[in-house]
């Protein structure tokens, strides 16, 4: 008992009064610092995902930062591009992907990375996602699946689980949710992974692996919107939701890649929360169809005569 009490005492002896240098966060250079703090609620998973993306481009990929353009649509997630100190664009609701397609076709050496919400990419923007995947355009799509329209105050999204309470499903959500990863794969994505925000390092690595992949890569991030989704479904705060992610995730292993992507439905029980979230790298086509910009170049040979 006494020993425990002792460990709970605040130990100020390690505090450095006159630090030997100016400290700054390792990713400060990659943040538009004047835009920080973000507009996000305390504990929101979007901030963590931004950090995972910065970790990915710093530690796990050699793509020059000058060649990365971060593009987002509208939503809480949509604001992500504005916090990252790279080339960026905050497109209109649902249209981040066509904007990025335009960039990629005009400048094939650029790697567009889309960071946007489940509503933005799979509700209003679903058609564009399908076509970009079909064309295998060389871009990386990071979708933050928080099961809700966060920015607009918590209306049900196409990802909201059956039975879940939202502002617009006060008697429980009736229709079935999308399995975003399956949709991406079915439409032609050649790389697909899913992680929860709890799984920071695997997520960062998967983002980088997706970016290194030539072609349409897709990363689904299961994130906590405790404010607009968790709160109405008794899932608790950011901490409780992330603990639930930790418990519910079922990690696929390297040998499952390309095999079990169709067994990746997320399970959610009303009153309990997420009971199963399959995560991991679901698909990585090594013998990929050639990405779009390359195909354009290969399509016709111009005879100069």
């Amino acid at each position: 008992m006494t020993a425990k009490k002792k460990t709970n005492e605040i130990d100020t002896s390690t505090m450095v009064k006159n630090p030997p240098k100016k400290f700054h966060h390792p990713y400060d250079e990659l943040l538009r610092k004047y835009a920080i703090p973000t507009i996000y609620c305390p504990g929101c998973g979007i901030g963590t995902t931004i950090q995972a993306f910065l970790e990915a481009i710093t530690k796990y990929t050699d793509i020059p930062h000058e060649n990365i353009v971060v593009i987002s649509g509208i939503g809480c997630t949509g604001r992500a591009s504005g916090y990252i100190n790279l080339d960026g664009f905050h497109a209109i609701h649902g249209r981040a992907i066509p904007f990025a397609s335009g960039v990629e076709i005009a400048r094939p050496d650029i790697k567009p990375v889309i960071i946007s919400g489940d509503g933005d990419l799979f509700s209003i923007g679903m058609g564009h996602l399908a076509h970009a995947a079909r064309r295998n355009i060389d871009m990386t799509v990071i979708v933050i699946n928080n099961s809700i329209y966060g920015l607009t105050g918590g209306q049900d999204a196409p990802t909201t689980p059956v039975g879940a309470l939202t502002k617009t499903t006060p008697y429980g959500k009736i229709s079935y949710p999308f399995n975003l990863s399956q949709i991406a794969i079915a439409n032609g994505a050649t790389f697909c992974a899913r992680y929860t925000v709890y799984e920071f390092t695997p997520l960062a690595k998967a983002i980088a692996r997706g970016m290194n992949h030539q072609g349409f890569s897709f990363i689904e991030v299961i994130s906590n919107c405790h404010v607009n989704f968790g709160r109405r479904n008794n899932l608790g705060d950011a901490i409780a939701m992330r603990k639930q992610f930790k418990k519910a995730r079922v990690r696929m292993t390297e040998k499952d890649i390309n095999k079990d992507w169709h067994k990746t439905d997320i399970e959610f029980k009303v009153g309990v929360g997420f009971t199963k979230i399959p995560t991991g790298i679901f698909l990585e086509e090594k013998e990929r169809p050639i990405e779009f910009s390359e195909r354009i170049v290969n399509a016709y040979e111009i005879k100069k005569s």
Binding site: R95, P98, A100, G102, V103, A106, R107
Partner: peptide
């Protein structure tokens, strides 16, 4: 492309890419 919404947004993207 898939529709007119995509086409105008692709144009904006391409224009920003030069």
């Amino acid at each position: 492309v898939e529709d007119e919404i995509a086409s105008i947004n692709m144009c904006i993207g391409a224009s920003w890419a030069g």
